[in-house]
Amino acid sequence: MRRRGPKLLDRVGHWLDRQLQIAVETLGRLMRTPLPTGMTIAVIGITLALPIALYIMTDNLRAMAGGWDQTAAISLFLHQDIDDDAAQHVAAQLRERPELARVDLISREQALDEFRTLGGFAEALSQLTSNPLPIVLAIYPQAAHSSSERLEALHAELLTWPEVDFARMDTLWLQRFQAIIDLAQRAVVLLGALLGLGVLLIVGNTIRLEILNRRVEIEIMELVGATASFIRRPFLYAGVWYGLLGGITAWILVNLAVLLLQQPVSRLASLYRSEFPLSGLGPAETLLVLGGSILFSLIGSWVAVNRHLRGAEPG
């Protein structure tokens, strides 16, 4: 009894040795038939790459939209006859409201300058004798007050002010855009679950065929006293290998696509005078992809093994 401790450790060590050995043997067996194994792995990889790529796309779009949060929520265009002092007064009134984070006053001169540098209107503007641009107040609400209902209410109220000629809501489209991305991302997650189920079926079917191919061997192993778990184990390990290698394939495919799109995207961004680094799979996401892939194919092989290997059952 005193020797039980080390003995137990010995047994755990022996067990781990066996598991490792079976895992390596199973990998060796898969490698001996490179073509079918490679094809199964490629199918898993492509199946998983599709939802991952779509997810990354929506993630990048979201990051891009996040960069536009600096846009004013409402732009107030004041009447032409309002001068700078009166405009300052209106701005001060607005700044007192607690729901607003910031109010910027853009004078006629500033607006004209901006037009000259940005829009390529320099030629046309130099023809003008007077500045046709109104004073604009750019309004940024507090984050807690930026829901579309509150903005609508604020927008409606400001329109009734006598100094205000016209008010434009700038962020509504942005919110709509974000809602669309949210929807798309949810759809992508659903698609991912569906294709994960596909991986489960692919691996399940592959393992099923493997079991049928090795029927004779399995029978003989049962004759010489193999336990059910001894016979099942290599098939379950095969499932883990398919999942791991398929997941790695998907990872490579997605990151390759990101790499290939990096340049065209930054060219496109530069045309919009902005920078946009396309992001691939981070370490946490990589782990999630590999873990998910292994999980789905392990379940697939588990189902196949349970359906087709019933153990040493006397007739």
Binding site: G225, T227, A228, F230, A312, P314
Partner: peptide, 10 residues
């Protein structure tokens, strides 16, 4: 029992 059959065959 079923799970003892392999040991019997050994």
């Amino acid at each position: 029992p079923q799970r003892k059959i392999p040991y019997h065959r050994r």
